[in-house]
């Protein structure tokens, strides 16, 4: 190639950071937390498949749990391969400190936090939140602060409200609309929903779109979820027979 060698050496893919916030309060024990653990073992494969179809985009994963405290399971956004080694099953206990989780997310969604290693190279992030209860701490002020964060503003946000006790209104306020909240009545379906939304959010976030924002596209995809039929993840080689 000669003349353009230097220009080819400077090529680098942009990165989409996908943030998970999992409620692991005491009420999540049993099937709910087991489904989360089960789902997160599939996530690296889903993300790798999405990334392969978008050669210019890397997808990295950051995950935190919140109960009485907030605990980041990843020291920084990790590649799918790195994430496989980092994920350890989470156990349910404690309260539902959503406010603390939002405050912590605000800190991490910054160049000083998790988004500093790749200047100019980040795509709009994805945020997936799962909770089965109402916040037990002050959440409105942290949300107000988080809403000033440009990364958060541009992020595609989806929340899972698991069971009757989940506060859907609060989650809708976090995501910006009721359309971005997925209500899960049957805890056995948590795994499939996490996989479906992960595939949809990451695919949408790494593909150019016209007219509609990534959030609108994801909201439309969520609308197609029918509680009575299996969710089909539109990525090859994902085992959906275990529904």
């Amino acid at each position: 190639m000669g003349r353009y060698d230097e220009n080819i050496n400077e090529v680098a893919a942009r990165t989409m950071a996908l943030f998970y916030l999992f409620d692991k309060s005491g009420s999540m024990s049993g099937t709910k937390i087991a489904q989360v653990n089960y789902a997160m073992k599939d996530i690296p494969k889903i993300i790798k498949d999405v990334a392969d179809s978008a050669p210019n985009a890397n997808i990295q994963v950051a995950a935190a749990t919140f109960s009485t405290n907030v605990n980041w399971l990843t020291p920084k956004p990790l590649t799918p391969d790195e994430f496989i080694g980092q994920w350890h099953d989470i156990h349910a206990e404690g309260l539902t400190s959503l406010g603390a989780a939002l405050r912590s997310l605000n800190e991490k969604m910054s160049r000083k936090g998790f988004l500093g290693d790749n200047p100019m190279g980040y795509l709009a992030p994805g945020i997936i939140i799962l909770s089965d209860g109402a916040p037990t701490d002050e959440w409105e002020k942290p949300l107000e602060e988080l809403k000033k964060n440009n990364w958060f503003k541009s992020a595609t946000k989806v929340a899972f409200a698991v069971g009757d006790d989940a506060d859907q209104d609060v989650l809708a306020k976090v995501c910006g609309s009721k359309e971005a909240v997925v209500s899960i009545d049957d805890p056995e379906k948590i795994r499939q929903y996490i996989k479906f939304v992960t595939a949809t959010v990451s695919k949408t976030g790494t593909t150019s779109s016209t007219g509609k924002s990534a959030q609108e596209i994801v909201n439309e995809a969520i609308k197609t979820i029918d509680n009575d039929t299996p969710v089909v993840v539109d990525i090859p080689d994902i085992d959906d027979d275990q529904w």
Binding site: M1, V11, P55
Partner: peptide, 16 residues
């Protein structure tokens, strides 16, 4: 020369 480069750029870069 530019076509050769752009083909390589698409493969290594945006894919677009």
């Amino acid at each position: 020369e530019l076509i050769d480069f752009l083909n390589a750029l698409s493969q290594k870069g945006s894919g677009d």
